[in-house]
């Protein structure tokens, strides 16, 4: 067991897979010699050399296109898009190419690759370097989408993503890079499509992702200690495949549902979860499902403004308390 930061876990997760399989290669902007702008890939270039860990030009379409061509013909590429906001300049690959080639070719074309990216707010970078865009990817048939919240999950889900035969979009949260967690020694391999109950409870279910998991947990502690409300917190971890059984099972137990989403309100992933629960567990609910989200605005840069828009533990506490009391 060792204590690792989330950013160290990224490098360890990639290294674990590159050491296992020589077909795993890694490319992106400033990822090799510089070790990544978030220092999440430090040491990989030194360990695996310039043929497997490659710096690219600032050409996001070339990065993702090259990853796809390599994946189609036998490699298992990991591609970095520095900020998930930049998906907008290479979205053709994410929306049209990776996820549709297998279907359109009637199963001939394979695309086993991982796109890892820095997602989420908290760095005061403003509207084009802070977004949470996991919902952009969740809506596309053919993709898989994961977003780990702890160093251990980073390594385990990275391994699962690299070994998966489908294209996987791997969202790392920028505000989690400096956080620490206990990580077991040796190989860690997790499973896609598995949510985790990170705090069992009986009064309500709070479903969160990435940075929002720690805020949901903090809120649950306050709700327990100050208001006697016992929350079950689920780290959804994987949006596609989605572990609906864990979610529906929890709702069947607590009869109340809250989602905590960093992506803006409209068409956030919580809407899909609420829709599934409404369809399939409506009579389990004792009250309306409630979404706690970032409002439908671009993200501001100033700390005082950014802090107002992201869901906080306080806002979760207030929302849950008000909803359960009403």
């Amino acid at each position: 067991m060792a204590e690792l930061t989330y950013r160290e876990a990224v490098a360890r997760g990639i290294a674990q897979e590159m050491a296992r399989d020589p077909d795993v290669v890694f490319l992106g902007e400033d990822v090799a010699k510089a070790g990544g702008v978030f220092k999440a890939t430090v040491g990989l270039y030194e360990q695996f050399g310039p043929l497997r860990v490659r710096d690219t030009p600032i050409s996001e379409q070339a990065i993702l296109g090259a990853a796809m061509g390599a994946a189609m013909t036998g490699l298992k590429p990991i591609a970095e898009i520095m900020f998930s906001d930049f998906f907008a300049v290479c979205f053709d690959y994410i929306a049209n190419e990776f996820p549709k080639s297998r279907y359109m070719s009637n199963g001939q074309t394979k695309c086993p690759l991982v796109v890892r990216t820095g997602n989420g707010a908290g760095s005061r970078f403003g509207a084009q370097h802070s977004q949470s865009v996991e919902n952009w990817c969740m809506m596309i048939p053919g993709l898989k989408v994961v977003a780990p919240s702890t160093p251990r999950d980073v390594i385990g889900l990275m391994a699962a993503a690299v070994r998966d035969p489908d294209p996987v979009i791997f969202f790392e949260h920028k505000s989690l890079y400096a956080t620490k967690g206990e990580v077991p020694d040796g190989e860690i391999v997790d499973r896609l499509g598995t949510a985790k109950i990170v705090r069992p409870g009986k009064d309500c279910t709070i479903i969160a992702l990435a940075l929002m998991v720690s805020r949901a947990l903090a809120a649950a502690e306050t709700l327990q200690s100050e208001h006697g409300i016992d929350c079950e917190v689920i780290d959804v971890r994987s949006l596609v495949p989605l572990d609906t059984q864990t979610i529906l099972g929890s709702v069947a137990k607590t009869h109340r549902l809250f989602t905590v989403e960093e992506n803006p309100r409209l068409c956030g992933w919580g809407a899909e979860i609420v829709s599934i629960v409404a369809d399939e567990a409506f009579y389990e609910l004792d009250g309306p499902p409630v979404r706690i989200t970032t409002p439908h605005i671009p993200l501001p840069a100033a700390d005082i403004l950014e802090d107002m828009v992201l869901p906080t533990a306080e806002r979760i506490v207030e929302t849950v308390k008000r909803s359960l009391e009403s």
Binding site: V25, L51, R52, S59, Q61, A62, I63, L64, G65, A66, A67, M68, G69, A70, A71, M72, T73, G74, L75, P77, D92, Y93, N96, E97, S101, M104, S105, T109
Partner: peptide, 25 residues
């Protein structure tokens, strides 16, 4: 025939990736 691509330009980077595989392997 590794596909026919209907989004203009999409397959030039994809062909690069296939060529990268050949170079690497």
């Amino acid at each position: 025939v590794m596909g026919s691509y209907a989004i203009i330009g999409a397959h030039l980077p994809i062909a690069c990736g296939s060529a990268w595989r050949a170079q690497y392997k």
